[in-house]
Design a protein around this nucleic acid. Sequence first.
DNA 1: CCATTTTATATTGATATCAATCTTTCTAGT
DNA 2: ACTAGAAAGATTGATATCAATATAAAATGG
Lengths: 165, 165
Amino acid sequence: MAMSNSVEIPFSTTLLVRDTCLCLHAQRAARALARLFDDALRPAGLTNGQFSLMMSLNRPEPPPMGPVASLLAMDQTTLTAALKPLQRKGWVSVMENPKDRRGRLLALTGEGKAVLATALPIWKETHAALDQKLPDGSSARLRQDLQTVSGMTDETPKPAGRRLR
Amino acid sequence: MAMSNSVEIPFSTTLLVRDTCLCLHAQRAARALARLFDDALRPAGLTNGQFSLMMSLNRPEPPPMGPVASLLAMDQTTLTAALKPLQRKGWVSVMENPKDRRGRLLALTGEGKAVLATALPIWKETHAALDQKLPDGSSARLRQDLQTVSGMTDETPKPAGRRLR
DNA sequence: CCATTTTATATTGATATCAATCTTTCTAGT
DNA sequence: ACTAGAAAGATTGATATCAATATAAAATGG
């Protein structure tokens, strides 16, 4: 033994990683924003994730699960799980696609639309307040940069060509 | 009945929310980056979160839990949970603080330091590759903006003055 | 010194997240 | 049509996340 000293990482390196790691900064900001919106949306009975998911289902035609998972940049299995509580509450309906019986079509129910309509003004206020607190053009720039990062990671043309995961 | 139409949210609104919501963009980017680093760090046996946590414990003096949770912008209860698997693996030690027996002091074990040392070059490569793929100054700017957002949300001097949650 | 309050952390319960794997169904090539 | 492979989701198991609440110990005021 006495080998454990040979793998010491200098404290300065730790500080460097802490300060520069984009992944860490993204996780922190995501957690902070999630709490901000979760708190604001709580009276409407929604979390930030549920709000985003339900909003993404508010379209003319019910989408299948795959594209929705892609849009939210989440694993397909995560989407399956996230739908469960929304189905239980009767806010989202998951039906078999008659054109392709492997697939599911996701739609908001009337009640789901009502809940979403309640949440919308809260989102507007919260987001406006957030924008205002950010320095001048930060908001648009940050949004743009985040989009770049999100889009970058699944563009690696893997051997067999599967993009997501 | 027939009331469900009164709460329809226009599709254009949905598109607006999707495109502008900073929270959604942050969640997506966070998920994408998490996957990127999780994949890269897998050979070292760490997730991105475990890497960040363990790196934050690499200091001269073992810190208590509160400051570490703050640093990572995570709930204290999340930190308690996140420590469990690391303790089980023998990479992190959690000991009672003799100066304040409510508190715990967190430290990397020798084995933990070794694991972290294995992961460090992977982090370096992955982060360098990420930086390179981002347009010119995006990386630094994004980091700065994310930090602003993270710092903003817990600065609301609540009635009794409690900052975190 | 004692009662109250505050602080630090743990526990519980619910949802979120993903890897690995499985089933079902569709599609292609023959 | 048949069969091999691909595609869409579901399930399982592990970790992550937070609200609500509980516990224990320190700090504080009288």
